[in-house]
Design a protein around this nucleic acid. Structure first.
Length: 281
DNA sequence: CCGGTCACCTGAGTGC
DNA sequence: TGCACTCAGGTGACCG
């Protein structure tokens, strides 16, 4: 579910709530969500103080005392909620972390795709290597971004969704950025001219910044720590608007499948470059 | 290296 | 109401 702006919003809220606090108990209800094993997670995390909360791509990393790490990926429907545990597990809540005063962080995940890892320092270093998390769009200069695309023969949509190349973009913001820059989602990445690549990078940054200001997009499930959704869905110009009129040219917005995902684009504003026409068109 | 399909799950929306 | 079918913000395995 969540992409960079949603995860960033959650991380900022988590910082306010849990940094400097000590974890009193951890309860795991659905064991398979803890990929490093529920018992080990409980052992590593119980009694630790939260030193920092960071985002690495779409991962949330809790830095704990004694060089321990709690890592969470929310996948499609993972949520963190701030509340308390009074003996009853709310629907789809699978992990509860309690702090002093009974305040608790609840991990909720309807589809159960998300997961948690409890790691020690050396394992954390190994995990960072194995995940090959690409640079954050905010860490790249326009020239570096253009350089990333230069030798990629895959379609631009697939390249932008590949977290090893650049981390944080998902289906919504990918479609929004390609529309804003006027790039066809099926265009081979290496055929995008330098100037256009720079414009794409600029649009990615603009859109992500604005989405963070709006606390993300809520189309279905996403909510922040307080259980409230974001507002950026009201600013979507292309995502979820297939069949409707393009806000720029008035044409009809198309929907295709690209990189296995529902993909929205304007055939007029995003003309095909290096995209072979389907037979019979 | 590249793309396509399925799998992991539970639900919401739609049309009959 | 009920049923069948599609789709969903992510990603990893597998296949050609």
């Amino acid at each position: 579910m969540p992409e960079l702006p949603e995860v960033e919003t959650i991380v900022r809220d988590l910082r306010r709530l849990v940094v400097g606090r000590r974890i009193e108990t951890v309860r795991v209800r659905l064991n398979k969500l803890v990929r490093t094993g529920p018992r080990r997670l409980v052992r590593l995390v119980t009694g630790a103080e939260v030193l920092a909360v960071k985002r690495r791509g779409k991962f949330i990393v809790f830095s704990l005392s004694a060089e321990r790490y709690l890592i969470v990926h929310l996948k499609m429907t993972g949520q963190f909620l701030w509340g308390e545990f009074q003996g009853v597990w709310p629907d789809h809540v699978h992990v509860i972390t309690e702090f002093e005063n009974g305040q608790a962080l609840l991990y909720r995940d309807m589809r159960q795709f998300g997961y948690l890892l409890g790691l020690e320092a050396r394992e954390y270093a190994e995990w960072l290597k194995s995940e090959e998390i690409g640079p954050d769009p905010f860490q790249l200069t326009p020239a570096e971004f253009a350089g990333l695309l230069r030798f990629k023969k895959g379609r631009i949509k697939a390249v932008l969704l590949d977290q090893r190349v650049i981390s944080g973009l998902g289906n919504i913001y990918c479609d929004e950025a390609l529309f804003a820059a006027g790039v066809h989602p099926l265009c081979p990445a290496h055929l995008i001219e330098e100037a256009l690549a720079r414009r794409l990078h600029e649009q990615i940054l603009n859109i992500l910044k604005e989405a963070i200001r709006c606390r993300g997009s809520t189309t279905r499930n996403y909510v922040g720590l307080a259980g409230v959704g974001g507002e950026y869905q009201n600013r979507h110009r292309i995502y979820g608007r297939s069949g409707e009129t393009c806000l720029v040219c008035g044409g009809r917005i198309s929907r295709i499948t690209a990189a296995g995902r529902g993909t929205h684009f304007c055939p007029v504003c995003q003309p095909p470059v290096g995209v072979s026409d389907p037979p019979g068109s």
